[in-house]
Amino acid sequence: MALASTLLFAVVAWFAVTNSPGWPRVQATFFSPSAALESLPDIARGLLVNLQVLVVGGLLVLVVGLGTAALRTLRGPAWAPLRILATVYVDLFRGMPLIIVLYLVGFGFPALGLQGVPTSPFVLGTAAIVLVYSAYVAEVFRAGIESVHPSQRAAARSLGLTHRQTMRIVVLPQALRTVTPALLNDFVALQKDVGLISVLGAVDAVRSAQIQVGQTFNFTPYVVAGLLFVLLAVPSARLADAVTARARRRQQSGSLL
């Protein structure tokens, strides 16, 4: 039944679009098979750049995000400066649009003309993405850390574990389990946002498509790049769903996890 209604809807939508007066033009400029085939190799090569940013950036985001969350959850007056610093960082980069951070980092740093500051759009683009995403992920981690009941900390400390051991052995493993679905969702978002480094001139999938569009005035390469990003995102999205469902089952089985 679900399948039948979905098919029916698809068929209706298909006819509505293909019978619209502008369809032949749209088909030629956005869905040209020959243009698609021609652009595919370059775009695929560009996608490798995106994948590199994704892997390097993703790992850095985990480290920086977790570090920031750890700073924000420090207790005691002595840690106030670090706590405030971490809070300001999170507020700033969670509020600022990614594209503006990309411009500021990507064009601002090289303009300083400092020795040793990298000018590669790949490096600067990754840095900007890490700055923004770490702020998000820090909040996810913080929520996870705070979801672990204080009695768990008390039990750990009563055994003589230090604050650091308590975090590493008792709190973080439980927090991670809670936040994995949310982290995977952020990862799916990151997968497409890595395409934004093209604004700095890095020749990634989006930029490759743009170059070909500029040469041929046919927009098909954009569609090709878009579809490649979707293909990339689907497995992670399904994984996120599966993990979320598993977490929910655990909760419903009455487990404290």
Binding site: S151, A155, Q174, S255
Partner: peptide, 8 residues
């Protein structure tokens, strides 16, 4: 009172 074993 609430045992506080580490569930993981």
């Amino acid at each position: 009172q609430a045992y506080n074993l580490f569930p993981h």
